[in-house]
């Protein structure tokens, strides 16, 4: 198959678009940045394999993180995105992009009705710090089939957000877990009693990222695009490290091989 094509959405306040573009390119994709005001005008998604909503503060997060952007996506792109995923396309939402996917009801069910949320961190403040993440790597794990293939059980990535606390009704949580939709959870070295700051925001069940029921739509709070070079890690000097963030992008492209 030809080089997969990636379309990165951007709008007022998107601010991780350039490094996300760089990460996809470095992984070998052909990447295009598109402003929502252009995309809404009859943009055809059929020539793209992957759509990505990157991090930032869309519209300042003024009415809640990702809220207005999610509203626009529902208004203008609902049917197209549904068709895109059903046709085998992948969607990745990172940080603000995850917030958008959740608030648009694309995650966890692709039914455009919001059932989970990412709310203000318990600390009530923006925090940028590196966290340990447990990869849900069981055979049944949906994310592991595409995005997280080949990654070790515990990886490091940075988080940088003020509204990343995963929250939903227990009934919904059960369903997500039962369906193996949890992709990543905040963890620590022992894997026991994960509290602040290992769980940086107070997320329910330490959830850091989830996929939809097909595994093709993936949203996460941590930033894989910020770990594509070893030097981005806070403790790279004198150590053997692999830049695990890059694997996320490579895996998404490999899916189309």
């Amino acid at each position: 198959m030809a080089t997969p094509k990636v379309l990165i959405f951007r709008t007022a306040g998107t601010n991780c678009d350039k490094e996300t573009e760089f990460a996809f390119s470095r992984a070998g994709a052909q990447v295009e940045l598109g402003h929502i005001n252009l995309i809404k005008k009859n943009k055809d998604f059929s020539s793209y394999q992957i759509i990505c909503i990157p991090g930032g503060f869309s519209y300042g997060d003024d009415l809640g993180a990702g809220k207005i952007f999610s509203l626009e996506i529902i208004l203008w792109l609902k049917d197209k995105l549904k068709k895109f995923v059903e046709g085998g396309g992948l969607i990745l939402g990172i940080c603000n992009g995850f917030q958008v996917l959740v608030k648009a009801g694309i995650l966890p069910d692709l039914d455009f009705s919001q059932t989970v949320s990412l709310v203000e961190n318990d600390s009530r403040r923006f925090e940028d710090r590196w966290v340990r993440l447990k990869i849900n790597s069981g055979n049944e794990s949906l994310a592991n089939k595409i995005w997280l293939k080949g990654l070790p059980g515990l990886i490091h990535l940075p988080v940088a957000h003020a509204e990343g606390k995963f929250f939903c009704d227990l009934e919904i949580l059960d369903k997500i877990k039962k369906n193996n939709q949890v992709a990543l959870s905040y963890s620590n070295n022992s894997g026991k009693d994960v509290g602040y700051p290992d769980n940086p925001n107070g997320s329910l069940d330490n959830i850091a990222g989830i996929v939809d029921e097909t595994g093709r739509v993936f949203g996460l709070m941590p930033h894989p695009e910020r770990f594509i070079f070893i030097h981005q890690h806070p403790d790279w000097q004198g150590r053997e490290l692999a830049a695990h963030g890059l694997s996320f992008f490579q895996n998404s492209l490999d899916y189309f091989k």
Partner: peptide
């Protein structure tokens, strides 16, 4: 203070003024 700043956006960080986990 530094941890409230997004000191890693744009992806260029090589050495951070303060390392979060170890207080380096």
């Amino acid at each position: 203070i530094l941890h409230q700043y997004d000191h890693e956006v744009q992806g260029g960080s090589v050495l951070k003024a303060i390392d979060s986990s170890s207080l380096g």
